[in-house]
Design a protein around this nucleic acid. Structure first.
Length: 187
DNA sequence: TTCGTGATAGAG
DNA sequence: TCTATCACGAAG
């Protein structure tokens, strides 16, 4: 299991290394197919840039805490707090479901495994992530947690999706060739 | 391509 | 109070 130390490096390192790891959430297990890094300092696309509440969150919580927020009036976004050499967040953008597919079908209303978690809003919906999970510790075996990648994986980096500032940073990380990643799919 | 939907924050 | 903005997704 990934312990708190894993989240005490920096957001880009964490985002890259989380691709290929497994997310255990309730009764479900999923392979992490896509992430993005956000830097608390100097990153105009990060919430900390414009939101005092996000800066306070970084101050008041340890590495490995869930940062969940509601966007566009309808989507929950799941992130994990990173605090170490550099502070920031990792956004989970896509998963490949491994188990617990039935409850995901139910929550999402679609059956195609490729459509279940291929986007940050979709995966939160599929897992049942809500504001109630904001501030939750993701480093405890009794709750949601992560398992390290079992073997070496190929990761491709690309510009982040859906942001209007700091678009040049290649801080999106995808499992190479994985059909479960969100659009636009990198090559 | 468009539009729904709501929290947040800054301006007035 | 009012308004802009937003790390999206489904429908058309």
């Amino acid at each position: 299991m990934l312990t708190r130390e894993f989240f005490q490096t920096d957001p880009v390192t964490c985002a890259r290394k989380l691709v290929g790891a497994t997310l255990v959430w309730g009764e479900s297990r999923s392979l992490i197919a896509e992430t993005e890094a956000y830097g608390a300092i100097g990153d105009e696309a990060c919430h900390t840039w414009s939101r005092p509440s996000a800066r306070a969150f970084v101050e008041n919580h340890p590495a490995g805490t869930a940062y969940v927020y509601f966007n566009y009036g309808m989507h929950w976004m799941l992130n994990v707090l990173v605090k170490g050499r550099k502070d920031g967040f990792v956004l989970f953008r896509a998963l490949e479901p491994l188990s617990g597919l039935e409850s995901m079908h139910l929550a999402r209303g679609v059956k195609d495994p490729l459509q279940l978690c291929s986007g940050p809003g979709k995966l939160a919906r599929a897992l049942g992530v809500t504001g109630a999970d904001h501030g939750r510790d993701l480093c405890h075996p009794d709750g949601p947690h992560f398992m390290a990648a079992e073997k070496k994986v190929n990761v491709v980096s690309a510009p982040r999706v859906g942001i209007s500032r700091a678009q040049e940073l290649p801080w999106r990380f995808c499992l190479k060739g994985c059909l479960h990643v969100s659009k636009p799919r990198p090559k």
